[in-house]
């Protein structure tokens, strides 16, 4: 449940960098995604035509504050997003570093506190740091979005053990792996680890065939979630034979 909303598909898609709005529309449909995220910082009030196309997709819109580097920028962008899309959902990004696009955890917590107090339902883009996660929850967030790897890098789950720890530390908070996912296998791994959803953009938008890649990600996320729900077998150090080795017929 993400702020009281139950989703069938656990794949969330970004909407930037597609070859055309038509390809984007087809990719969303092929992926089965029910949530799409959209940026506002550059497009501003003049971006209505593109936003209308996104609204027509029928997906729930998660506006984001991509490109914001300060608390004030992020808060202003979030307020504009609420007005333009009529939603209190906001994916909060406060970038600390222009090169790595690493979130600034201090500004993030501060912006999250302001927005939550103002009635926003905040999806903060954060690192896998547990203390930052706790501070964000204390600030009013009911979802956390740890990064898999730096935005657009396609490196997958760079700190897999830390993500596992985070999952174990916040058993009841919806956790979405956001950013850095490059391949369906990586999205599937996150779902098998028990994450509630994954959010990605570049891996689909910049694929040679974005629609086919969107479908592949949709299937991988569904399979990963089904595997997690079905209960994965524990990893063992030794082989465990599935048939007894005693009592085999000696035919010599």
């Amino acid at each position: 449940m993400f702020y009281g909303i139950d989703l069938q598909s656990r794949l969330m898609l970004g909407t930037a960098q597609y070859p055309s709005p038509q390809v984007l529309r087809d990719a969303i449909a092929a992926s089965g995604a029910e949530v799409i995220t959209v940026s506002l910082r550059r497009e501003g009030a003049g971006g209505d035509a593109f936003r209308d196309i996104l609204k027509q997709s029928g997906c729930r819109i998660l506006p984001n504050t991509a490109g914001c580097h300060t608390v004030q920028e992020a808060v202003t962008t979030a307020q504009m997003a609420r007005e333009l899309f009529g939603t209190s959902w906001i994916k909060l990004e406060v970038i600390g570093h222009a090169d790595t696009l690493q979130p600034d955890p201090f500004a993030l917590v501060e912006a999250a506190r302001i927005l939550a107090a103002d009635g926003f339902e905040v999806f903060p883009y954060t690192t896998e740091d547990l203390i930052v996660g706790e501070k964000l929850i204390e600030a009013g967030c009911q979802v956390l979005m740890p990064w898999g790897a730096p935005i657009g890098s396609g490196q997958g789950l760079r700190h897999r053990e830390a993500l596992k720890t985070m999952r174990a530390h916040f058993p009841d908070i919806p956790l979405v792996v956001d950013a850095g996912i490059g391949a369906p296998s990586q999205a599937m791994a996150a779902m098998e680890m028990g994450f509630d959803a994954v959010l990605l953009n570049t891996a689909v938008a910049k694929a040679l065939d974005p629609v086919a890649m969107a479908r592949a990600f949709g299937q991988a996320v569904a399979a990963g979630r089904a595997a997690h729900d079905a209960g994965l077998m524990p990893r063992r150090d030794m082989a465990v034979a599935s048939t007894p080795i005693f009592g085999m017929a000696d035919l010599a």
């Binding site: 497009e43 501003g44 003049g46 971006g47």
Partner: peptide, 8 residues
């Protein structure tokens, strides 16, 4: 040349 989805 830049590419921005806006009518501004």
């Amino acid at each position: 040349a830049t590419m921005v989805e806006t009518a501004r």
